[in-house]
Amino acid sequence: MIQIQCPNCGPRDETEFHYGGQAHVAYPENPDALSDEEWARYLFYRENTKGQFAERWSHSGGCRKWFNAIRDTVTYRFSAVYPAGSPRPDNAPAQPDSNDPIVGGTK
């Protein structure tokens, strides 16, 4: 079981969270000016990163707040958690060597 560090509630089990997909997908400034293809690209096309990926998470089983996180899509390891709406941190901390998740309780 992965534990995720909720910025409000501390480390909680993955089952309490809801995945929100890729972070930093900006709403088009003028949606009316977009072609169908551009609109479809905004709606449905997402990165398929192998490695560090910025994504949105919601602590739906707890405080119900959204936040952003950087997760390695290969190892599932979370390297950073930061508030929704703030820019992606430039240098996310290096991954720990151990196989333990970076955050965790003691269960």
Binding site: R12, G62, G105, T106
Partner: peptide
């Protein structure tokens, strides 16, 4: 319950949202 309910973590008087 997915929380760690051991008294060293989950102390008396604590209330949380969980499952």
């Amino acid at each position: 319950c997915p929380l760690d309910l051991h008294p060293r973590i989950f102390k008396e008087g604590t209330a949380v949202n969980t499952n």
